[in-house]
């Protein structure tokens, strides 16, 4: 159930070039949020920026009653949020949306993150560790450059199951993460029904993931973004087109969709 509440900033940590991790206190979110849910944050009290900004729940700490959002500064709203200090109060709506549905037992799980797409997948990964066989858990992480790669150190615990690309080759394989993913899928063509794929990243990447999923009939859940106004399903301002020609709302019908169901432009 979506609720409106205030939350204080516990910490604000700079993780990289224009990338920040905000920890916010909220027992409500820490208890209720599921991987793939997001929060809608009121950035300030002035009329510019006016609308709330959406951020995936990046992780929760049930004991401390707090949760994290990972944000990249791309404009005014994210710029203002990146300057928040401990003790600052924010007005939030959340948790919003249908999250990822967790994999059935025995499936091989692949998480495919592009850039900031790691935000919701990190929460999902933390939910899977311990529940899913380590051998059956693969993490694909792609970024433009080494500087924009997040959590490589933490992810190394996954051992050989971590696959990394950078566009410029500054770390891991040079190229796109979707290419590396496709190679892996081709090698597993015969047991594609045993795979569960989860992905988040920039629009072009998710478009490619959708094409691959349709081509190989993969069970793949993607977390979408889009300009959003209300965030509660009322305004129909954030539609995604479906294969059947109709639309669904990214905010409450998503943001997680079956990659085979949507048509991305």
């Amino acid at each position: 159930m979506i609720s409106q509440f205030t939350s204080s900033v516990v910490s604000n940590q700079k993780l990289g070039e224009k990338i920040f991790k905000l920890t916010l206190s909220s027992p409500y979110i820490s208890k209720r949020a599921k991987p793939g849910n997001f929060v809608h944050i009121k950035v300030g009290s002035t009329y510019s920026p006016l609308l709330r900004r959406a951020f995936s729940v990046h992780n929760v700490d049930k004991q401390k009653g707090s949760f994290e959002v990972l944000l990249k500064v791309v404009g005014r709203g994210t710029g203002i949020l990146s300057e928040k200090s401990p003790g600052d109060i924010l007005d939030l709506l959340g948790p919003i949306g249908k999250g990822f549905s967790l994999p059935q037992e025995g499936k091989t799980v692949m998480l495919v993150a592009g850039g900031m797409g790691i935000a919701p997948l990190w929460f999902l990964l933390n939910n899977l560790i311990g529940k899913t066989d380590k051998e059956k858990l693969l993490f694909f992480s792609g970024a433009k450059t080494e500087k924009e790669l997040l959590y490589c150190e933490n992810l190394k615990d996954l051992g050989a199951n971590l696959m990394v690309t950078t566009d410029d080759g500054s770390f891991g394989t040079k190229g796109l993460i979707t290419d590396l993913f496709l190679k892996e899928i081709k090698g597993r063509k015969n047991d594609s029904s045993k795979l569960m794929v989860y992905s988040c990243g920039p629009p072009e990447m998710l478009k490619r993931m959708s094409e691959i999923s349709k081509g190989y009939d993969l069970s793949c859940q993607i977390s979408l973004e889009g300009n959003m106004a209300c965030g509660v399903g009322a305004c129909w301002g954030c539609p995604v087109k479906l294969e059947n020609g109709w639309y669904k709302r990214v905010c409450v019908d998503g943001p997680v969709f079956d990659a085979r169901e949507v048509v991305l432009e």
Binding site: P49, L50, G226, N227, W236, G237, C238, Y247
Partner: peptide, 23 residues
């Protein structure tokens, strides 16, 4: 009505534009 294709909204100075298309 299914409404217009996205993007349907865009924030402008102290306001927003919408073209929902009566969905």
């Amino acid at each position: 009505r299914e409404g217009h294709p996205p993007p349907r909204t865009f924030e402008t100075s102290c306001g927003m534009l919408n073209a929902i298309g009566l969905a």
